[in-house]
Computed example of a mutant assay.
Amino acid sequence: MPEGHSIVDKAGHQRDSVRIKWYEDGTGRTYRQHHLGSDEVPDIEIASGDLATVDIYPRDAVPVFVGHYWLTGTPTPLAANVACTDYSGAKDGKLVAYRWDGESELSADKFHWVETE
């Protein structure tokens, strides 16, 4: 985050960094648009130098499945070749899986889940 800006995470901790969408180019976007998480991130433009060290995951790379994001809502690919299967299964969310058959472009209809309590 730019100097002087911070967010408070869901556990109440003040943070001066945010998780960005490493699978999308953030050029010309705001921190809120490029943040993977809540809308509590300031809606200020990202300076071009702030993304200078970020390697964007190529759209033609092999699909990757990730976790530790605690997403909500209906599971869907984050990008054509990026899927998260962490939908807060331990905290009244969903226990999520993706049935991958070797396809290079992921599909929302291949997610499977059960609600947890």
Rank of each mutant, 00 (worst) to 15 (best):
M1Y: 08
M1Q: 09
E3K: 15
E3M: 13
G4N: 14
H5V: 05
H5R: 08
S6R: 11
S6K: 14
S6Y: 10
D9C: 11
D9K: 13
K10Q: 12
K10N: 10
G12Y: 10
H13R: 07
H13I: 08
H13V: 06
Q14N: 13
Q14D: 03
Q14F: 06
R15D: 02
D16E: 13
S17E: 12
S17I: 00
S17D: 13
R19K: 10
R19D: 05
K21I: 00
K21S: 07
W22A: 09
W22I: 06
W22G: 11
Y23A: 02
Y23D: 12
E24Q: 14
E24V: 15
D25V: 07
G26Y: 09
T27E: 13
T27G: 05
R29G: 02
R29P: 02
R29M: 08
T30A: 03
R32Y: 06
R32L: 08
R32D: 03
Q33E: 08
Q33S: 03
H34A: 14
H35C: 15
L36H: 06
L36E: 09
G37I: 00
S38Y: 01
D39Y: 03
D39S: 12
D39M: 01
D39P: 03
E40I: 00
V41G: 08
P42K: 00
P42F: 09
P42N: 09
D43T: 05
E45Y: 04
E45R: 15
E45S: 11
I46S: 04
A47H: 09
A47L: 08
S48Y: 01
S48E: 07
G49P: 02
L51I: 05
A52M: 07
A52S: 14
T53C: 15
V54Y: 06
D55Q: 14
D55A: 11
I56Q: 05
I56G: 08
Y57T: 15
P58Y: 10
P58R: 13
R59Q: 12
R59H: 05
A61W: 07
A61G: 05
A61L: 01
V62H: 09
V62A: 11
V66L: 11
G67A: 12
G67T: 14
L71F: 00
L71Q: 13
T72P: 04
T72Q: 01
G73I: 03
G73Y: 03
T74D: 02
T74Y: 04
T76P: 03
P77V: 10
A80V: 13
N81T: 01
V82T: 12
V82E: 01
V82Y: 02
A83I: 14
C84K: 04
C84H: 03
D86K: 04
Y87K: 15
Y87D: 04
Y87L: 11
S88L: 07
S88D: 04
G89M: 00
G89E: 00
A90W: 00
A90R: 07
D92Q: 15
G93T: 04
K94E: 02
V96I: 05
Y98K: 07
Y98F: 08
Y98P: 11
G102Q: 05
G102W: 00
G102C: 07
E103D: 02
E103I: 05
S104W: 10
S104T: 14
E105M: 03
E105V: 06
A108L: 06
D109T: 08
D109I: 03
K110I: 01
F111K: 06
F111W: 10
W113G: 07
V114A: 13
E115P: 04
E115R: 10
T116S: 04
T116I: 03
E117V: 07
E117N: 14
